[in-house]
């Protein structure tokens, strides 16, 4: 059996088709890989139909492996898998997109590491999620196309939280429900979003939220990245959004991601 073109994800029988056969095909993004045995790799994949899953790539570390370069970290590939006793085994792989511009740039590949760690930490195995797959795929595409690491990350973080049910409340005050006035407001991940002046000022968990940052959050929650990328962001505003989203992500994860530390170190090195 050979790999055909990218299979259509339309149709409600997609998963049944996958589940019933001994060999199946799926597109996937490789979000994690660890050494396994002598030359094998244990991969964590994110797929549209099966969500996050793990699979073995036999012999992928050998130079002549026909899998090798097609199952590298942050590749979007079409895979053929054979059902195994515990873990499924990748029998064939064909890269769809290798996001080459990301690989040639230290900042962008680090953003890629962060994105994949975020997805890995925040998702459960085997939960079908086409929308999340598209979100991830788009983020990598945007990263490769725009080379604007910070902006892509902020947009991705916001949409990821939104998709997983942690959408920050930015229309009304998250505490008293009153409309937010066009003035400096507050933002608190603990309260779940923006706070009006009265509620935010005494709240120790809240930080100031500028009018522009609020506007950006509102706008980004309802547009695609192509539109989001047209918003002009100066250095200050970018920094504010970064802090906001960071705190929000940390609150949801209840921990700091390791690749987040690395990104910080990298950007600190640049300003030195």
């Amino acid at each position: 059996m050979s790999l055909s073109a990218v299979p259509s994800r339309a149709g409600k029988n997609y998963n049944n088709r996958i589940m019933s056969s001994r060999v199946y095909q799926t597109e996937a993004i490789i979000i994690k890989k660890i050494k396994f045995g002598e030359a094998d790799r244990l991969l964590t994949l994110f797929t549209p139909g099966l969500g996050k899953m793990r699979a073995i790539a036999k012999g992928a570390m050998r130079p002549k492996s026909k899998l090798g370069g097609n199952v590298e970290l942050l590749m979007h590939s079409l895979l053929m898998l054979a059902r195994g006793r515990n873990l499924d085994i990748i029998t064939q792989a064909q890269a769809i997109n290798n996001f080459m511009p990301i690989r040639d740039n230290l900042e962008l590949i680090s953003c890629g590491f962060y994105i994949s760690e975020l997805i890995d930490t925040l998702t459960e195995e085997n939960v079908e999620d086409h929308e999340l797959f598209d979100l991830l795929l788009n983020a990598l595409n945007d990263l490769a196309a725009s080379m604007e690491g910070d902006r892509v990350l902020r947009y991705f973080e916001l949409r990821l939280l939104d998709h997983l049910g942690y959408r920050p409340q930015v229309q009304k005050c998250a505490n008293c429900g009153r409309d937010l006035l066009p003035e400096v407001n507050y933002f608190s991940p603990v309260q779940g979003g923006a706070l009006c002046r009265e509620c935010g000022y005494p709240d120790m968990s809240a930080r100031m939220l500028s009018i522009n940052a609020l506007k950006v959050l509102r706008f980004w929650l309802q547009c695609d990245y192509a539109t989001a990328s047209r918003v002009k962001l100066n250095h200050e505003l970018m920094k504010e959004l970064k802090t906001l989203m960071r705190e929000n992500v940390k609150f949801v994860l209840e921990k700091q991601l390791k690749s987040m530390d690395w990104l910080d170190e990298l950007s600190a090195g640049d300003t030195k």
Partner: peptide
């Protein structure tokens, strides 16, 4: 490309 290999099985990154 690895010596003794085959273009057909080369991945896109390696080939480019």
């Amino acid at each position: 490309l690895p010596f003794g290999g085959d273009l057909e099985y080369a991945d896109d990154v390696t080939l480019s």
